[in-house]
Simulated scan of single mutants.
Amino acid sequence: MTTNKNIKILLNYVIGPLVFCLLAWSIYRQLLRQNNWQASLKHAWEAMMGAEAWKMVLAVVLMFANWGLEARKWQVIIKRVQHLSFIQSCKAVFTGTTLAFFTPNRIGEYMGRILYLDEGARIKAISLTIVCSMGQLLITWWAGIGGILYLKAYGNTELLHTFAGLWLNLVLYFAVGAAVVLTLFYFRLAGLVRWIEKIPKLQKPVSYIRVLDNLNATILFRILSLSILRYSVFIGQYFLLFDVFDVHVTAAQVAGSVSVIFLVLSIVPTIAVITELGVRWKIGIEVVQLFDSNITGILATSLAIWIINLVIPALIGSLLILGIKVFNNRK
């Protein structure tokens, strides 16, 4: 009992504040390393104080819709091993976002979420959480493929004949192959589990993923539907913020450009706290300039999206780590 109490004190009063301070420091260092960060911040500040400020506020409100949909999606799939309330699911998702901030391609998200589950359900929950992420990744890849085709058809012809056109083709070929494989894998999870069960040496690992055998087509399509809604929220945020920062693009151009940005972000190895902002800026410039040359506006939009969708949720999650409830003993 004394050992458990000491561990809880360490986690809540040492690790929690340390994570919060490290997050704040890393954000500051990340901004200092980026070119044009002062111009982007100045532009963002002027926009927030101007007549278009309501669009910025709406984009922040949509952040809660974004993560609320993700929390609902996780709640739906995780009930195969444990029932959680929507509020508990939201807390788990925000905590996962904090840990994801420090890990390559957000893999720490899984560890943050399972803190809210009973010990006996945690390992099984990892496989379910991966399926949840697979649903979002499927939407990201197929939408990105459509976005590349749109850019190639309607983007700036001169720029498409440069290096931009070459890397778009490379990403397209990779994405098509990967999306087809992932789609087949996603809808054949139960069959995969039954196939693995036939291998004697894998009996112990398969006990942790046998829960996937209960995921029927209805559940999988529900996950995809929530993923599409969440993806639509992303597009809406970009549309609002491009307008705020005077990047003149139509709704179709926003959808096409943003889908390619998300596609590349899902493929390129990044760590949110170190490299993701720079990657977002670089991809945003390369893609959106096919329709508008306002580089400062593109940088400001990418920065605002990064802060709204990643930094604020990560800060919320770091505050939740401070709460004793995250580390309470569970029955």
Rank of each mutant, 00 (worst) to 15 (best):
Y173P: 00
Q203W: 03
K201E: 12
L192Q: 12
D243V: 02
Q237C: 07
L189S: 10
L172Q: 07
P200M: 03
A175I: 02
I261V: 15
Y208P: 01
L184A: 14
N214L: 10
F187I: 07
R222C: 09
G177M: 04
F245T: 01
S257F: 10
S232Q: 01
R210Q: 15
V181T: 10
I199N: 07
L184G: 14
F239W: 14
R210E: 11
A175L: 04
Y238R: 06
I196H: 04
G236T: 02
V206R: 12
V254D: 03
V206F: 13
Y208V: 01
V260P: 00
N216G: 10
E197C: 12
I228V: 15
K198M: 11
A255N: 00
R230G: 08
A255L: 14
R230N: 06
L215T: 15
N214F: 05
V254A: 06
L265N: 03
R210L: 06
A252G: 07
D213V: 09
V244Q: 03
V247F: 10
I199V: 14
V211W: 06
Y231K: 02
T183E: 04
V193L: 09
K204R: 14
L170R: 02
Y186N: 13
V249G: 02
L220S: 13
S227D: 08
H248Y: 08
L240W: 08
A251C: 03
L229I: 04
F221E: 00
I223C: 01
L189P: 03
G191C: 07
F245W: 09
V249W: 01
Q253R: 12
G256M: 09
D246Y: 02
Y173I: 15
L226S: 04
L263S: 03
A190M: 02
V180F: 13
A190L: 04
F245N: 03
L226Q: 12
R188D: 06
H248G: 03
I228W: 07
V254W: 06
L184Y: 05
I199K: 13
Q237L: 11
Y231I: 02
V180Q: 05
F187H: 12
V244L: 02
Y231P: 05
V180Y: 04
T183V: 04
D246E: 09
V244A: 04
I223F: 01
V180T: 08
R188F: 04
H248F: 03
L170I: 15
N216H: 12
D246N: 14
V247Q: 13
L226F: 10
V181R: 06
H248R: 13
S232G: 12
F245Y: 13
V244T: 07
F262N: 15
V249P: 01
E197L: 12
F174K: 08
I196P: 01
F262K: 05
P205T: 14
D243K: 12
L215K: 05
D243T: 14
L240C: 11
D243M: 07
L229S: 04
L182A: 15
D246L: 09
G256Y: 04
F262A: 03
Q203G: 05
L240A: 02
I228G: 00
K198V: 08
I235H: 03
T183R: 06
